[in-house]
């Protein structure tokens, strides 16, 4: 590296940069800590919406994430299911963004069930508690079809009852009595793509919508949240961590004075303390601090280098 200090500060070699990033995102993982955090309003509303579901409610879930965003989406998916299982909800899952998505969702639920089995907890059973309706290509048309004629859109799709060949999904307890999208008291979208926009376009105003989106989608999702087209959302890793903390502490719970998480807008919302609440959010969020701090430091370093180089040129 030649030149003055300013130029040197601006020209760290790429391999060094990459190595620093690997270290910043690896070392903290070996030292799990719990960082203080104040959940954002949108996640509080998201949690409040899930917890307000009457027991046994039927929920429509559009699961549009795959391995590409598992760092964020899988954590959100697992936390949401932990809450839905607690609410004894019945979940109809379909996908519209990626042919891999239905299998990814199915594998994630199976993984959750295996963990529950190991802990001697009741499992969340396919057919009786959830059905996988499958993949619908052309997301825009698919959501339009579901919004306008749910019975027709899902008609002919099959899933697996216990000890029986696949049967029409409308025979499952999950979709019993469901004929239109309004029959679901909530539609959830866990997505890493534009399908959340399509849900707003077609379903908002028909039934409440709540999203779990990736970090990059937070700013555009905030727009829908601000205009009340969605009731709440969980955005990125921060959202997942917020959700895990909300599961643990609730809101204004047990009372507003002693609550860990407070809200003027919301009433008392129960939490359910359980070590199992701590998932991907708790594991990754402290490490994110180091990575973001590195980003801030590198940007500052580059700019300081630029100013020093300019001053050097002038002198």
């Amino acid at each position: 590296m030649k030149g003055n200090l300013g130029e040197k500060l601006q020209s760290l070699p790429k391999p060094i940069l990459y190595l620093i990033l690997i270290l910043a995102t690896s070392i903290p993982l070996f030292f799990p800590t719990e960082v203080p955090n104040e959940p954002v309003e949108s996640t509080k509303d998201f949690y409040a919406t899930l917890m307000a579901l009457p027991e046994g409610s039927k929920v429509l879930l559009m699961s549009d994430w795959t391995g590409s965003t598992r760092g964020e989406s899988k954590g959100a998916f697992r936390s949401i299911f932990k809450i839905l299982i607690r609410r004894k909800a019945k979940v109809a899952i379909y996908s519209a963004a990626d042919p891999q998505a239905p299998r990814v969702a199915q594998d994630a639920i199976n993984e959750l069930n295996m963990e529950r089995k190991r802990k001697n907890l009741p499992t969340f059973d396919r057919w009786n508690d959830w059905v996988n309706i499958g993949y619908f290509p052309n997301a825009e048309a698919a959501i339009n079809g579901i919004a306008n004629d749910l019975k027709g859109a899902f008609g002919g799709r099959k899933d697996f009852p216990p000890n029986s060949p696949p049967r029409d999904v409308f025979q499952s307890p999950v979709l019993q009595g469901v004929t239109k999208v309004e029959d679901f008291p909530l539609m959830l979208v866990i997505t890493a793509s534009k399908t959340s926009n399509f849900a707003v376009e077609r379903v908002s105003g028909r039934t409440p919508l709540a999203f779990a989106v990736t970090g990059v989608m937070v700013p555009e999702t905030q727009v829908f949240y601000q205009s009340k087209q969605i009731v709440g959302y969980c955005g990125g890793l921060k959202g997942v961590y917020d959700l895990e903390q909300l599961m643990e502490s609730g809101v204004n719970f047990p009372d507003k004075a002693t609550a860990k998480i407070k809200s003027d807008k919301l009433g008392t919302i129960e939490g359910f303390p359980d070590p199992d609440n701590k998932g991907q959010g708790t594991r990754y969020y402290p490490t994110l601090h180091y990575a973001l701090a590195l980003m801030i430091i590198m940007i500052i370093l580059g700019n300081v280098g630029m100013f020093l180089a300019k001053r050097g040129d002038k002198s």
Partner: peptide, 28 residues
């Protein structure tokens, strides 16, 4: 394989984003 590689492919961008921000994000 597929899901892990999918995750790896998308995460590689983190390196490029840091490098690009360090080199180009200037108060000009």
């Amino acid at each position: 394989l597929l899901q892990q590689m999918d995750a790896a492919m998308f995460s590689v961008i983190a390196f490029y984003i840091l490098s690009a921000a360090y080199r180009a994000f200037r108060v000009r």
